[in-house]
Amino acid sequence: MIVVNCPHCGPRNSSDLRPCGEVTTRPDPATASLSEWRTYLYLRENPAGWVTETWYCRSGCRRYFTIERNTATNETRSSEAS
């Protein structure tokens, strides 16, 4: 079981939430070239280790937040980015 700590609802089984993937920097849609925009859409770091990611608290507070998770061990900790 992967335990995710929602800042509003507390620790929950990950199956109560929806993972939304690693946090990436969104280029300005008004100035980004098509290829910059597609890089943002599709390319991922996908590391085996600590990653900052977004989660959606689907069956709790229904808010989005970020946490850090180690993708090799599934340990989680709160994120600086949130």
Partner: peptide, 10 residues
């Protein structure tokens, strides 16, 4: 649903 390099049964 959760991306990970850890394989275990759930």
């Amino acid at each position: 649903p959760v991306g990970t390099y850890r394989v275990n049964g759930t």
